[in-house]
Amino acid sequence: MESAGRAQAARDRVPRIDPYGFERPEDFDYAAYEEFFSTYLAILTRRAIKWSRLLKGGAGVQKSMTLKRYIRKGVPLEHRARVWMGVSGAQAQMDQNPGYYLHLLQGEKDDSLEEAIRTDMNRTFPDNVRFRKGSDPCLQRTLYNVLLAYGHHNRGVGYCQGMNFLAGYLILVTRSEEESFWLLDALVGRILPDYYSPSMLGLKTDQEVLGELVRTKLPAVAALMDSHGLLWTLVVSRWFICLFVDVLPVETVLRIWDCLFNEGSKIIFRVALTLIKQHQALILEATSIPDICEKFKEITRGSFVTECHTFMQKIFSEPGSLSRASIARLRERCRARLLAQG
């Protein structure tokens, strides 16, 4: 009874809509969230003070060891756009190409590209009040512009489903169309190796790479997957394609992206390995393919992923060493294998 009362009280205190405009799901655990957030709020405040000091004077964001440490501990929302723009090189691109974004939007349009993007407009974040038709301002138009401009900018990629979620988050964070465009370019064009091209070879490669990493670091899980002939793509494709959007809680995704923009795509493996390692015992209970699929959904929910600050500490300790060189080697090997398979 007492806990029911506490849950109701938390429900009354915590807003139904989160700071980014997402409606909280029906089964949202308000009590657990409030408990976590009361601790997290202290961390956020402490970090905000440190960041203000670091960024004092309004100079550009310079990559450094200090900055890396700061970023791993989380970038405050008010500085996020600036930091992402700085460390990803998006700011430099934007500065070097004034007017380019508008030029893309004013040029001649590819009909099939427009059609493909339009199809997904009502289907991108229907649970976010700012993306709903009739909201003011309605971010659907912004999203449409960013994706359309990007499709014309990078014709080899055009528009690939999944990019709508990435662009949507960028818009929510930057609140700027042009910055979202350049950040999307940083992600799709530089940080993620060839995920969205027609063959999606980079995506397939990275899913295989994760499989290899699991084989080395968590052999029992790899054995389970093998024994059912289950392909990694079935359970983790969303993780890679959407960079955890709609997989993990919003705040956790943004913390991951903080590091992704600064340290590169390696972070995705760290997150994936941490999720799997933490829940190894649970995953190993699975006895069938549907079971395994269900477990892989389960491990993306609950307090372990909601408590983003602890989670981010874990991704840098749990998976152990993960050198850039070994990832590069694995990518090369998996890529060759995929190409040989045709």
Binding site: T124, G162, S237, C293
Partner: peptide, 14 residues
């Protein structure tokens, strides 16, 4: 029946 996000990759039901 509700508004569903586009499927990327594959989803699975039994």
């Amino acid at each position: 029946f509700r508004s569903i996000l586009p499927t990327v990759g594959c989803a699975f039901f039994t």
